[in-house]
């Protein structure tokens, strides 16, 4: 239960919601599925004076545009994403990444936009502070960092743990953002600041309206992996998303996007490792090397009881496998054609 009062308004349109958020200047928060926001309010990590509910706004169904790209309303529920025939056919990696979020009830409530806009996580942050960690940390406007006491005030090594963001970045997706002055469109990748204190590049009165994913060209293949201890109902220790573009020979890589999530303040792209694959034949050795390079350059933050070394091991092995699975998927599709 939440033990402070706030007000509540339901917006009929996203424009209304933005106008409300703008007027409240930081004291209002948009409420979509609430699966991240309301637990945060229960822990009093966030204490908004007003919630602007988006639940009265019916999301548009996912649609394929004339150029073959797919447009998905940010208010689409994760359960809709994972079960939508269209999404599973056109952007299966997105459906897969939605499928592994939380538990079923979370996916029934949570939305695509909400998942992208979730707060960063830290064991010291994610609990009530009645008698543990009472003095607020940097993230909560205070003057200390519990897990990394020597960190400077502008540094918050918390971890952004969305399962979907890495998939969207790998897919080179964009988000349409509605603000007071209209809409803007940026790469999903640009949504993340890499700063744990303010992980999203959104102003207070901006809301995600839609996600746009470009059409897959022939030769496209993908791989996705979420490392967990239990296989469900938890945030990942690492989330890996891979999008590859293969030449007609089915082995030469013409483009590669690798994204590692849940180990830093935002999703990370190991650009050098991606480049090391481009123009090359994807054999075991090359994939192994790219995975090893990635695990190093990503420089994972120790989080949720996992050491940096173990996270590096995990990323190295699972990224290599994810790359191999992407390749295999392309072969299977070729064989099935």
């Amino acid at each position: 239960m939440i033990l402070f009062d706030f007000d509540y308004e339901r917006a009929d349109t996203l424009e209304q919601a933005v106008a409300l958020l703008a007027r409240l200047q930081g004291d209002a928060r948009a409420l979509a599925g609430g699966t991240d926001l309301l637990p945060g309010m229960r822990m009093e990590n966030i204490r908004p004076g007003l919630l602007v509910s988006l639940s009265g706004i019916e999301p548009e169904a996912p649609q394929v545009l004339a150029d073959g790209s797919i447009r998905i309303d940010a208010l689409t529920r994760l359960a809709t994403l994972e079960n939508s025939e269209l999404v599973r056919r056109v952007v299966p990696m997105l459906a897969q990444s939605a499928h592994v979020v939380g538990g079923n009830q979370i996916r029934q409530m949570g939305t695509l936009g909400g998942n992208l806009c979730q707060e960063v996580r830290c064991l010291h942050l994610d609990q009530k502070h009645d008698y543990q960690f009472v003095a607020p940390c940097y993230k909560r406007g205070g003057t200390c960092c519990y897990p990394f006491p020597r960190n400077a005030p502008e540094v918050c090594w918390s971890v952004y743990m969305s399962d979907i963001a890495p998939a969207l970045i790998a897919l080179n997706a964009q988000v349409e953002i509605l603000g007071e002055t209209g809409t803007r469109r940026i790469d999903v990748e640009a949504l993340f600041t890499g700063n744990g204190l303010k992980p999203l590049a959104l102003s207070q009165a901006e809301l995600l309206r839609a996600v746009l994913i470009p059409a897959a060209a022939p030769g496209f293949t993908w791989g996705f992996h979420k490392s967990t201890v239990r296989g469900g109902l938890e945030f990942g220790m690492a989330v890996l998303a891979v999008a590859l573009q293969l030449a007609e020979d089915g082995r030469t890589c013409t483009d590669a996007r690798i994204v590692v999530g849940a180990v830093r303040e935002g999703p990370v792209r190991p650009v050098a490792a991606e480049r090391s694959l481009i123009g090359k034949t994807l054999d075991e050795e090359r994939m192994e090397q790219a995975a090893a390079d990635t695990s190093r350059v990503v420089n994972p933050l120790p989080h949720h009881g996992f050491s940096k070394r173990h996270l590096m091991d995990n990323i190295r092995v699972h990224l290599r496998r994810t790359l191999a699975r992407a390749l295999q998927r392309a072969r299977d599709q070729e064989a099935g054609r």
């Binding site: 538990g103 064991l123 010291h124 994610d126 609990q127 543990q132 960690f133 201890v229 239990r230 296989g231 469900g232 109902l233 938890e234 945030f235 949720h304 009881g305």
Partner: peptide, 25 residues
């Protein structure tokens, strides 16, 4: 899976997301 993580007598994972009790999986 399971471990109550503590540091200096404080509990770091006081919830079932981070204290990993078996699920149906």
């Amino acid at each position: 899976m399971e471990e109550v993580l503590t540091k200096d007598g404080y509990t770091l994972n006081p919830n079932w997301l981070d204290y990993r009790m078996p699920t149906i999986h």
